[in-house]
Design a protein around this nucleic acid. Structure first.
Lengths: 188, 188
DNA sequence: CAGTGGTTTCTAGCATCGCTAGGATTGCTA
DNA sequence: TAGCAATCCTAGCGATGCTAGAAACCACTG
């Protein structure tokens, strides 16, 4: 019966390699360059193997990558919590800048992943919780939940607009300071 | 020589119909459903005709749609300027909600359109100018340009996160009020 | 009116994509 | 070792964006 265990382990290991290969390729050449044929070649198997791991096909692979991304982002935000609102904002933007393709998978693409719903994965709730933790002290009379959503929107907007070359690169740090100035003060 | 003029007029009219058909189809079924074959069928011509108008192919057609969108958004924001910062914020979000596919073409997709650069089309600068107009009075000692970028990012983030079902629908209006509360006060 | 040259348009096809059915191969079991 | 079941691959389908080359059209000249 250990044989069976090893085979299961091999399978999960191979699934991991698929997602890993997808992430690397996406980060290097963008998600459009991530084709099932290239992925199959990278893991040295044929195409149908991908579908035995991810019946949903390419979308499911991207969703798996996105879930990894949410876990990593949550971890990053957790360690940044010590830096307060400013530290979290900086960490969030830096994460998105460092792994743009992953961030795309998390937000722009795989938007089928449920979020503000019952079946939202825990890792995704964790991200919101981290943002909430630094917003709550400055919420004052304002409702912390919606205010966190606005704060999150600001960070997300900064990331996506900057990516589309909509913002001037030179003001990058000044923008973050302004975010802190507008959100960091207690409102009551 | 009037014949030549009429032929030119017919051509521009047909180009307009292409973009129009693309926008309608995208708004109805999403940009993935906008294929060159369907567009050709809609305008009752064959595929290669599309490329005589838009050598860049589908991307160029989407870019043309995006430019139309920027012009329309600028117009919307201009009339909303009377409503101050709150009015502009509401108008921006409402525009994006009403024409989600168009908004996608403007920001998520055709990101090759230059913006914060020299060859940025005037219509795109106009949008920024409208936002700047309502931010300037509340900038105080803060730099109005970067602050406008942050404000814009917040609106854009609200739109895109909401679209991906990342935010709770119920708090939609409250979020906008919080945006006004955080950006509407003069900072000095 | 017939012919001619240039423009416009279409037919047909290429390479690639995501995805899958069905056969071949492998490895375990008895 | 024979048979069975799980695993994997070959081959192919339909659809995509895009394009080369043939066909149709139209304005102008002799």
């Amino acid at each position: 019966m250990t044989q069976r265990q090893r085979r299961v382990r091999d399978r999960t290991e191979r699934a991991r390699r698929i997602v890993s290969a997808a992430r690397e390729l996406a980060e290097a050449e963008g998600w459009d360059a991530v084709t099932t044929r290239k992925l199959a070649a990278l893991i040295e198997y044929s195409q149908p193997v991908l579908y035995s791991h991810f019946p949903g096909g390419k979308d499911a692979i991207m969703a798996a990558a996105a879930l990894e991304g949410f876990a990593e982002l949550a971890s990053v935000l957790e360690t940044a919590r010590a830096g307060g609102l400013a530290g979290v904002a900086e960490a969030y933007v830096t994460f998105a800048e460092a792994k743009p393709a992953l961030y795309d998978a998390m937000f722009t693409l795989a938007s089928e992943l449920p979020f503000a719903q019952d079946d939202t994965p825990e890792v995704m709730k964790a991200n919101f919780a981290e943002l909430l933790a630094v917003i709550e002290p400055v919420a004052g009379k304002q409702n912390a939940g919606p205010l966190t959503e606005v704060f999150w929107s600001t960070l997300h907007g900064l990331v996506t607009l900057d990516r589309g070359h909509r913002l001037s690169r030179a003001h990058r740090d000044e923008r973050l300071k302004l975010v802190v100035a507008r959100f960091g003060a207690r409102a009551d």
